[in-house]
Simulated assay, not measured.
Amino acid sequence: MAEIIFHSKQDANKFYHHLRECLKYDPDYENILLFEDRHIVKVLNGSVSEEFFQQFKGAFYDFITVIKREDWFREILMNQFYFEDFEEQQQILEILYSIMDGQREDLSHFLKDSVEEPNVKEAIEHVLQENVSFSFDSFVKFRLRSYLELLESYVEISIDEYKMEQEYQMFVQMLRDFLANREPKMEKLHLLFDDEITFYNEELQEIKRGELTKMIDRRLLVNHPVYVDSASIAPLLSLAPTAIFLYVKDEDAPLVRTIKNIFEERVIVRAYHGLRELKNREGGGTSAKNHG
């Protein structure tokens, strides 16, 4: 028999219902009982098959690495980093899970040394012997210390990313506010994204870098020198065109995304070779460079 003692009634209930849901046990195993006054879950009374015992260990592992992991993430956020707002916690956890799921390749390498699975399974194997009684909280404190430290490192990475995203959103909104007060200096502007960005006017003629520099509103560089890229964002904000055509190879490139976020419905994204085809069709841009 395994007898697991919980200090928290809530944890005991979570574990009990988790077992009922995952094990799908036969009536012979309905003796999984919860003694609420002592928060004890008794499991595996009498003789059980090896298959059932392995299923139980799997359920215990899932309880730790799925159900309790979520609780621990929130505790770390609250107690160590003072994020008490539930919605803010949720945003950080969404970032965290996206990193763990490999959706953010630029950050996933920070987790490549993760050894959570073997460490937790080894701890379970060690403690979960037949006819054993143990405290879940002591098990966590002494056997899962390295696992909890690992979770803390995950949270730290996610908080850093969350703060960067918050700063980015503030940056985008600041530039939208600047743009809202600008009169358009031209109707259409074409940008070709290659090794560098090349600007073309409405007649599809290249705007030289020196010309662009003269067009920049100096207030942008004085008031926001850290945030504004003088080669792309500053000219765009200064000219404030009604329509911006982007000719790109990768629509998800960071600068492309930023321009789309700032200028929103003004942006039209087209294929990289679209500008060359447009110039050929209209017969314009004789002074422009031959890109593509």
Rank of each mutant, 00 (worst) to 15 (best):
68 K>Y: 15
110 F>V: 00
267 V>Y: 14
157 I>R: 01
177 D>N: 13
91 Q>E: 08
206 E>A: 09
194 D>I: 09
230 S>I: 12
32 I>D: 03
183 E>W: 02
215 M>S: 07
3 E>H: 06
248 V>P: 10
68 K>H: 12
201 N>C: 11
119 N>V: 02
96 L>S: 04
178 F>Y: 09
133 S>A: 15
138 S>L: 15
286 T>M: 04
36 E>V: 02
3 E>T: 14
225 P>T: 08
225 P>I: 12
110 F>I: 00
193 F>A: 05
129 Q>R: 05
137 D>H: 08
14 K>A: 09
35 F>H: 07
232 S>G: 05
289 K>L: 05
218 R>P: 05
16 Y>G: 03
191 L>N: 01
166 Q>E: 11
23 L>A: 09
95 I>M: 01
113 D>W: 02
149 E>M: 15
128 L>Y: 15
180 A>G: 03
111 L>I: 00
219 R>D: 14
162 Y>C: 08
211 E>R: 15
288 A>H: 12
184 P>Q: 06
14 K>S: 09
188 K>Q: 00
122 E>P: 01
227 Y>M: 12
68 K>W: 15
61 Y>N: 02
29 Y>D: 13
246 L>H: 10
225 P>N: 06
290 N>T: 13
162 Y>V: 13
143 R>F: 10
291 H>E: 08
207 I>C: 07
206 E>T: 14
54 Q>W: 11
263 F>R: 05
251 E>G: 00
175 L>A: 12
115 V>P: 00
65 T>M: 15
270 R>G: 09
166 Q>D: 07
285 G>P: 03
103 Q>R: 13
224 H>Y: 15
258 T>Y: 02
110 F>Q: 08
30 E>M: 07
246 L>V: 10
93 L>F: 02
177 D>C: 01
278 L>V: 04
258 T>G: 06
65 T>W: 12
